[in-house]
């Protein structure tokens, strides 16, 4: 199963390598990873997408928790959450396809962030599925390259019960 795991860590040098080293050293795989500061600049959040059966993911979260610089680990499999990813795609469509490409981008609520004589660079944000779908659709028009940010996720605020 694929799990999105969010790791609150001390914002210190070397912490990223402690986390990534744990994954490589123990043979866990990282599908994507993104890191950034939080509201408290002394901490960062890493969002890691990984795969493994229940036992493996249990070990991953426990091993992460064991790292001294890790403050909190959330496996979003167990939490109602919102997740997003962004991709920047550079396409070089044939002249006659250019409007079609722009239309597709519009349907996916993409934005054109740069354009050259023969290329468009588009920004698409959404859930992973949407991004994959967009890439599939745009592929026949000629993708030059794309970069993905990796997933970020945040827990939903449920309505508080009672009161």
């Amino acid at each position: 199963m694929r799990h999105t795991i969010s790791i609150l860590v001390e914002n210190k040098f070397g912490v990223l390598s402690r986390v990534s080293g744990l994954f490589s050293g123990r043979g866990y795989n990282i599908e994507s990873l993104s890191v950034g500061e939080t509201i408290d600049p002394a901490t960062s959040i890493m969002t890691i997408v990984t795969t493994g059966d229940d036992l493996v993911v249990e070990q991953i979260t426990k091993q992460l928790n064991k790292l001294i610089d890790v403050i909190k680990v959330v496996d979003f499999m167990e939490v109602d959450h919102v997740e997003r990813e962004m991709v920047l795609i550079k396409v070089s469509p044939r002249k006659e396809d250019r409007t079609e490409v722009l239309k597709l981008a519009e349907i996916f609520r993409g934005r054109i962030v740069d354009s050259g004589p023969t290329t468009y660079t588009m920004e698409i944000t959404g859930e992973e599925k949407k991004i994959n779908a967009f890439i599939e659709l745009i592929k026949p028009f000629g993708i030059k390259e794309f970069v993905r940010t990796g997933k970020v996720a945040i827990a939903r605020e449920g309505l508080k019960k009672g009161k």
């Binding site: 070397g14 390598s17 080293g21 744990l22 050293g25 001294i68």
Partner: peptide, 14 residues
């Protein structure tokens, strides 16, 4: 040495 011993210490410091 901090990098080298990262996987074989409980924790390490520079």
């Amino acid at each position: 040495i901090v990098g080298i011993t990262r996987p074989c210490t409980k924790h390490n410091y520079l």
